[in-house]
Design a protein around this nucleic acid. Structure first.
Lengths: 131, 131
DNA sequence: GTAATTGCAAAAATTTTGCAGCATT
DNA sequence: AATGCTGCAAAATTTTTGCAATTAC
């Protein structure tokens, strides 16, 4: 896999990104594969994996590990976090940032040089609440 | 797999829990399997998986999905979060809580009834910093 | 004795990789 | 033309499952 060269605009990559961006959810590699396949029937799952890996390494998309075994992907790079429903497993976005410095809050608790953080809220989604 | 019956104190389960509790890190199922195997050479990996699943469903241990593909497990149920090194993948604990109400900070951003949150700091661990 | 649990082996599920040919720049 | 990318197939990894035998209660 290329580490330094320029990214090319292949049909596969363009369609993949387009599908990922038009999806509000956070699809797994296979879900994305199914979506893209409708437009490019000959695409292979390996290409989907390779592109997701490449794109997330370049910071163009985000790779999520939200629980549940499979990884999920997210084209939204704006600052946001996630809420996960403990009942149905659904994952939604939460806009915004914490009003304090997370780095500072834990600065003396470890020797790490903190570069960022991921916040996952856990709760019950509206749908599951009304059941 | 049993859903309702009482848990039995099998040697496998006891040793598994003991090893998990005496480990400061957050081992994967396979790492735990290797540890337990030294004391119970005939244990099978399937038993490790089954017990980890069962114990986390009962809330006795925690199943983590911290990124990196494999799931990790944690016997510590006290309130703490995690830091992950982006270089080597190592995961450490971070004691404490945020000094603000996370629920409130995002209260108007979603319809969820928030029950908790998981925070994952990302950065470079001391060892990798000195390289 | 009964029901939970185990080991083994096989299967399922998910992700990665080698390679020859193709496509974007 | 050069090199990044793709499809395919095979391999590697991780997790789950069926089943007969065993074990804790």
């Amino acid at each position: 896999m290329s580490q330094t060269g320029a990214l090319r605009e292949t049909r596969q990559r363009v369609v993949l990104l387009d599908e990922l961006r038009r999806t509000k959810s956070h699809p797994t590699a296979d879900e994305l594969y199914q979506l893209v396949k409708r437009r490019l029937p000959r695409i292979s799952l390996a290409t989907v994996y390779r592109n997701l890996e490449l794109l997330s390494r370049r910071g163009i998309i985000r790779k999520l590990d939200l629980g549940g075994g499979q990884r999920r992907f997210d084209a939204d790079n704006t600052s946001h976090h996630h809420v996960r429903c403990i009942r149905c497993g659904r994952v939604d976005d939460v806009a915004g940032e914490l009003p304090i410095s997370v780095e500072q809050a834990f600065s003396d608790k470890h020797g790490y040089q903190i570069t960022g953080y991921r916040l996952e809220l856990v709760g019950v989604c509206p749908q599951c609440q009304s059941e």
